[in-house]
């Protein structure tokens, strides 16, 4: 009876009329739609988090092990064997501070790129703004990041590395990494609906992108004349920013960050436009 009362009341006031036509999209309606479906957005992100490490023995420990193991491998190969310079920072934290934003980014990028196809039964059965799907899978990576971030802080404590006010920049950098993943994820997820080739190119994109980002090495290794081109990769600014915020020592990568910000803005706006353009046919071709 209580349940009935809820809906009975909601019918009475002015009933909004929905018009379904061949096509009607404006940027504003995108954001108001997203806002209306914010609960679904959070529910889907929660589902992804909840399901991720189900039926694994180690569970959420994987969130830690992945960056830690990569750090060990990098430290041995690039730090010890190759002897890459790490600007006076112990190589393990030097690379771990870069791996954190990188893994956040690559995870978000991979999950969002395959998200629409993974949720194809939702797309062909229920209406909601399709943007919710890639966006929720980008958000789902934040928890993993938070866990490994705590570990990094612990490592810094153990190594008696000083903390500074620069840590305040971390949230901004996290947002920038997520925005980068979202921008590219929008393009790739929509393309993947029509062309499943995307799934097979993703590992290469991720791998190539990682080497084009100063994770195992320092960006000081890049010759000055290539620096402008190099900085077009938005993750360069993010990763350099992370090292600066957490470890100091390196110079503040203001220019790289500005370029990152501009590149991401352009990619994101373009991605949104493209996504909107093709989302009408998702249900028909998926």
């Amino acid at each position: 009876m209580k349940a009935r009362a809820v809906t009975e009341n909601s019918i009475q006031p002015t009933i909004p009329e929905v018009l379904i036509g061949p096509a009607n999209h404006s940027m504003r309606s995108v954001f108001s739609d997203l806002w209306r479906y914010r609960e679904l957005l959070l529910f889907l992100a929660w589902r992804d988090v909840k399901v991720r490490y189900k039926q694994t023995v180690l569970g959420a420990a994987w969130a830690l092990l992945q960056p830690l193991l990569t750090m060990v491998i990098f430290s041995v190969i690039f730090g010890l064997l190759a002897g890459l310079p790490s600007e006076g920072i112990p190589y393990p934290i030097f690379t771990f501070a870069a791996l954190l934003p990188w893994q956040l980014f690559s995870f978000a990028l991979n999950m969002s790129s395959i998200s629409l196809v993974a949720d194809q039964n939702l797309i062909s059965k229920v209406y909601f703004p399709r943007l919710v799907i890639p966006l929720s899978s980008v958000l789902a990576g934040i928890l993993d990041f938070a866990i490994s971030f705590v570990v990094l802080l612990a490592m810094m404590l153990i190594l008696r590395w000083p903390f500074s006010w620069r840590l305040a920049l971390v949230p901004v950098l996290v947002l920038l990494a997520l925005a980068t993943a979202m921008a590219v994820g929008l393009w790739l997820s929509a393309l993947n609906v029509q062309y499943r080739d995307v799934r097979y190119t993703l590992p290469f994109i991720t791998q190539f992108w990682m080497y084009a980002t100063p994770i195992a090495y320092s960006s000081t290794l890049i010759p000055e004349k290539w620096m402008a081109l190099y900085s077009l990769n938005p993750m360069v600014g993010v990763v350099e920013g992370f090292r600066w915020a957490l470890l100091g020592k390196t110079e503040f990568a203001g220019v790289s960050l500005l370029i990152s910000f501009l590149v991401v803005s352009v990619l994101l706006l373009g991605g949104l436009r493209y996504f909107q353009h093709v989302e009408d046919i998702f249900a028909d071709v998926i």
Partner: peptide
Amino acid sequence: KILARITRPTQGSVRLRGRVGS
């Protein structure tokens, strides 16, 4: 599917008053 807003009509329009559950 059109009424549920899963796919759009190629031509014509639909007006709906109220929340649609499918």
